[in-house]
């Protein structure tokens, strides 16, 4: 059984985002690029399953749609432990175009489980996983908080309002993961970093697909008015403000 983890590259989650060119583009100066937190956790879970001989998982691959500048991020995934990688050589323009590219990677390979994150921390689309599944006509399960594989049998937990569902799934399928999939992301050890240099990143030519969306401009959030401080010995004042000024209680 083979697992493909789709990874996207995002600015480090502590980045103070800034825009340039009249707020039409992200200002990338000084940005530290990292693997999207969800994808790091998916990769961690996939590797945990591979480590467990009874799972039947033999290989873990990663795929990223992006230009050559994204290769350090892919190397990082290889250093964490992915066996090999695919890079579709094109700028990622929107979720539809990205999913269409990933669908070609999946069709050309032999993957049983494809994992995507619930959302990228930059463009917050929440779309690539579901789109990929529809392009492939595979089932998809959204909101996976646990993935178990035993002798090739797959069981997942899916978060639903007020609880969770345990599902048994045939392969292939697309799993869209969220909190719970793994506890702490695996980090690359020295040995992994050395080994990653020898692993291959397979270049895939981009399919010709037009994006369906375009971002015209970004707007930084409205600055919040300065905080009103209330005397800790006078909580009545806070209640009065919430009742009469904010009108929320």
């Amino acid at each position: 059984m083979n697992i493909l983890v789709c990874i996207s590259q995002v600015p480090d989650t502590t980045t103070k985002v800034k825009f340039t060119d009249n707020n039409t583009r992200l200002d990338t100066t000084g940005i530290q690029w990292v693997i999207n937190p969800w994808d790091e956790l998916s990769l961690t879970r996939a590797l945990e399953l591979k480590d467990d001989a009874s799972s039947g998982v033999a290989k873990v691959s990663v795929a990223l749609v992006g230009p050559v500048s994204t290769e350090p991020t892919i190397r990082k995934a290889l250093a964490i432990g992915a066996d090999d990688a695919y890079r579709v050589d094109t700028e990622a323009l929107d979720a539809y175009q990205v999913a269409a590219q990933l669908a070609e990677v999946v069709k050309a390979g032999s993957f049983d489980i494809i994992l995507c994150g619930i959302e990228s921390s930059d463009y917050n689309g929440s779309n690539v996983g579901g789109m990929l599944a529809e392009f492939l006509n595979y089932p998809s399960v959204s909101g996976i908080s646990h993935l178990e594989v035993q002798d090739g049998q797959v069981q997942v937990n899916r978060e639903i309002d007020g609880g969770r569902e345990m599902l048994v799934l045939p392969t292939p399928f697309v799993g869209i993961v969220q909190k719970g999939i793994a506890r702490e992301p695996r980090i690359a050890a020295m040995r992994g970093i050395m080994m990653a240099r020898k692993k291959t990143i397979q270049l895939v030519d981009a399919a010709r697909v037009e994006p369906l969306t375009r971002t015209l401009a970004y707007e930084p959030p409205q600055p919040r008015p300065a905080c009103k401080f209330i005397d800790p010995d006078n909580p009545e004042q806070l209640i009065a403000l919430l009742q009469n000024e904010a009108k929320v209680i």
Binding site: V17, Y123, N124, T213, T215, L216, A217, Y218, E219, P220
Partner: peptide, 14 residues
């Protein structure tokens, strides 16, 4: 919503 709440994106749906 974009950038995890740090911006709003004006998105054109084509």
């Amino acid at each position: 919503r974009a950038f995890s709440g740090n911006a709003q994106a004006g998105l054109e749906l084509k």
